[in-house]
């Protein structure tokens, strides 16, 4: 119970800071809309092919825009040595990490929920038909993105090449989760239920979340303290 309160405190602090400055969410949102627009020059939005690749496109947008938010997650604490104070605070490293994860999760999810209707309007996909399932996939996929992104954000926060290293580390590790999310989203944004064959992908996505949440929590003290 105490642990959960500590997590909530860190998450609330991060969200409050973000809502006041809006430094990450504005950039992330603008970037997401920009890529969505750019896709229309690459693919003909009227074509049937658009439906087959829609899930992949959406998750590319989410993953790229998400990294912008995740990059700020720990980098925000660098001025005034806030990071040292946070690490020295009387809370376990895992509470700090989960708090930061929850804050980033909310921000990334907000960007996704704004881009989704825009995507639907631009490319004429009927994403509302299976919304509860789609929302579940969004939750699971975004959690995978935030957990991997946050731990590598903590790992790279003190190095010079931070902005370069974070995507380099995140995307290859994240690939299985992105593949499942893309596969599952493709049928859902076209208003069809998940095909029976694809439930294995859902299990993989859940498994990915569980495994990497556990590994991250086990290693977070090493990441933070060195």
């Amino acid at each position: 119970m105490k642990f959960l309160r500590q997590v909530a405190t860190v998450a609330a602090k991060d969200l409050r800071a973000e809502l006041r400055t809006k430094e990450a969410i504005n950039a992330s949102l603008a970037f997401a809309l920009m890529i969505l627009l750019l896709f229309s020059y690459t693919f003909d939005p009227e074509q049937e092919m658009m439906r087959q690749i829609s899930g992949g496109l959406l998750w590319i947008v989410f993953a790229f825009a998400g990294t912008l938010t995740l990059n700020r997650s720990f980098a925000r604490e660098l001025p005034n040595d806030c990071l040292d104070a946070l690490i020295a605070a009387p809370i376990p490293g895992s509470a700090l990490f989960l708090g930061k994860c929850c804050a980033s999760f909310v921000l990334v999810l907000a960007v996704e929920l704004v881009s989704l209707p825009v995507f639907g309007i631009f490319y004429r996909v009927h994403w509302t038909g299976q919304f509860p399932w789609l929302f579940l996939i969004l939750l699971l996929g975004t959690w995978a993105l935030t957990i991997i992104g946050t731990i590598f954000s903590a790992l790279t926060v003190n190095i010079k090449l931070r902005e370069v290293m974070l995507p380099m580390l995140t995307y290859p590790i994240l690939m299985p989760a992105l593949m499942s999310a893309m596969r599952l989203t493709t049928s859902l944004v076209n208003g069809q239920p998940i095909p029976d064959d694809d439930f294995a992908w859902l299990k993989m996505l859940i498994g990915f979340d569980v495994v990497f949440t556990a590994v991250s929590l086990a290693l977070i003290e090493t990441v933070l303290v060195g």
Binding site: L155, M175, P176, M179, A200, V211, V215, L219, V223
Partner: peptide, 25 residues
């Protein structure tokens, strides 16, 4: 050394999941 060790451990956990995903795909 500590950062590299963390990456190495993450990578090993990822390998089987990744191989399975690509196999299915």
């Amino acid at each position: 050394a500590a950062s590299a060790a963390v990456v190495s451990i993450f990578a090993l956990f990822d390998l089987p999941i990744m191989a399975l995903a690509i196999y299915w795909w």
